[in-house]
Write a protein that binds this DNA or RNA. Structure first.
Lengths: 197, 197
DNA sequence: GGTTTATTTGAGCGGTCACTCAAGAATGAA
DNA sequence: TTCATTCTTGAGTGACCGCTCAAATAAACC
C-alpha cells in the first residue's frame, strides 16, 4: 500500500466553500485558495483536478448544509407552516452572525455565470431547483395538514417564498442590512402564518 | 484647436453597461471591452482612466436608465399605488425581452464585491439606496393620496417592495424563469393593489 | 497649406492567472 | 530494512490580465 492524504477533505471543502461564497468564483484566485486551504497547488490539483471542480464540490457542500435546517424542522412533525414561518424568522438574524456572505451562494453563482451551458451554472440551477422543491413540499404538507385553504396552490406559494427569501438575503448583503432585514424577515414570517386557514 | 473624439461617449457607455451587466465586473476583460466598444486600449484609458472608473460610469448609466420608468409613472399624476403595481406587473415580461441580464446590475455588483469599502461597491449601494427611496416615496404618495390605511408604514412597504423586486429579478435569471416569473410578478402586483384602503 | 493640439493606435509592459510536473518525503506491506 | 506506492512540494509554464506610451493620424485654427 501507500501513503494517505494528511488533510481532512471535508474540512478543506468547507474552507473552500466559505472563500468562494464570500468572494465569488472569478475573484477567488488559486493563490487565495492555497493560503486558505493551506495546500500547495499540486495538492489541490491532485485532490480536485481543477478550480471549477473544486468550486462544484464546494457548492454541493453549501447546498447540503443549507438543506438540513428547514428539512429537519419539516420532518420533525411540527406544523409545516410553522416550520416555514420559523425559517423566515431566522433570516432576521442574518446580519448578526459573521457568515462568509449573507446572500445565497447558489444565487451568487447563477448571477455570476451568464452562460447557461456552463457546468457550474447548471449545477447551481439544479441545486436551486431542489431547494425550491423543498419549499413547495413544505406548503404541500401544510395543505395536507389542513393549514391552508382549499384553493391554495402550494407550488406557487413555495416558489414565491423562495423568491422572497432570495430577495431578503440579497438585501441583507448591503452594509445597512442590519437596520432593515429583521423587520423584513418578521413581515415574511407573519405573511406565512397569516395563510393559516 | 484640435481634434474631437470620434466616438459617442453615451453610446460607448451603454455598450459597456450591457457587457458589464451581463458578465459582471471580474469576468469582463479589457479584451472583451475593446471588442464590444470597438476601441483600442489607449482610447479606453484616455477616455475613462481605468476599468473601474469605466464600470462606475456604466453603473451610473444603468441606474439613470432604471430610474426613469417608475419615476415617470409616479410623476404623471396617476394613482401612485397603480404606478407601483404596474411596475411590478411589468416585471412579468422580464424573460421575454433579451436584456443583457434579468437581475438588477446594482445587486449583481454588490454581490460580486464583498469588500464594503471598495469604491464600486459603495457606488452600487448608494444607487440602490436611491432606488429604495423612490419606492418609499411612491408609497408615501399613495398614503398621502388616501390609498393606504392610516397605519401603513410607507418606509417599510417601500423596502419590502424593493426586496420583492430584487428576489423576482434574481429568480428571473434562472433558465426556467419564463415559466415562473410572470405568475410571481402578477402576485406581487396584486398584493400591492390589495393594499388599497 | 502649415501649424497646433488633440485623438488613435497597437506593440508591449510587469504582473498574475490557472495549472503542471519532476523530485522529495512519508507511509504501509513484505 | 527495503521496496512500492502515493502524497507533497514549489519553482516554473504559457497565457492572459489591466494598463502604458511613443509614434502615427486627423481635425480645427491661421
Amino acid at each position: 500500500m501507500a501513503r494517505k492524504a494528511t488533510f481532512d477533505r471535508e474540512d478543506i471543502l468547507k474552507r473552500a466553500r466559505d472563500l468562494f461564497w464570500r468572494k465569488g468564483y472569478h475573484a477567488t484566485s488559486l493563490k487565495d485558495l492555497e493560503q486558505v486551504l493551506e495546500l500547495k497547488p499540486g495538492s489541490i490539483y491532485a485532490a480536485f483536478n481543477s478550480k471549477e471542480a473544486l468550486f462544484s464540490e464546494a457548492l454541493r457542500v453549501y447546498a447540503r448544509g443549507s438543506r438540513s435546517e428547514l428539512q429537519e424542522a419539516l420532518d420533525a412533525g411540527v406544523s409545516p407552516l410553522s416550520a416555514l414561518a420559523q425559517h423566515a424568522r431566522s433570516l432576521g438574524g442574518l446580519c448578526d452572525q459573521d457568515s462568509p456572505a449573507r446572500a445565497c451562494m447558489l444565487v451568487k453563482t447563477i448571477l455570476e455565470h451568464p452562460d447557461q451551458t456552463s457546468p457550474v451554472r447548471q449545477l447551481a440551477e439544479d441545486l436551486m431547483d431542489e431547494a425550491g422543491a423543498r419549499f413547495v413540499d413544505g406548503f404541500r404538507r401544510a395543505k395536507a395538514a389542513g393549514e391552508l385553504p382549499e384553493g391554495a396552490d402550494p407550488e406557487r406559494l413555495g416558489l414565491k417564498f423562495q423568491s422572497d427569501v432570495i430577495g431578503l438575503r440579497a438585501f441583507a448583503q448591503r452594509s445597512d442590512g442590519a437596520e432593515i432585514v429583521p423587520g423584513l424577515a418578521e413581515d415574511l414570517a407573519q405573511s406565512v402564518e397569516a395563510m393559516r386557514a
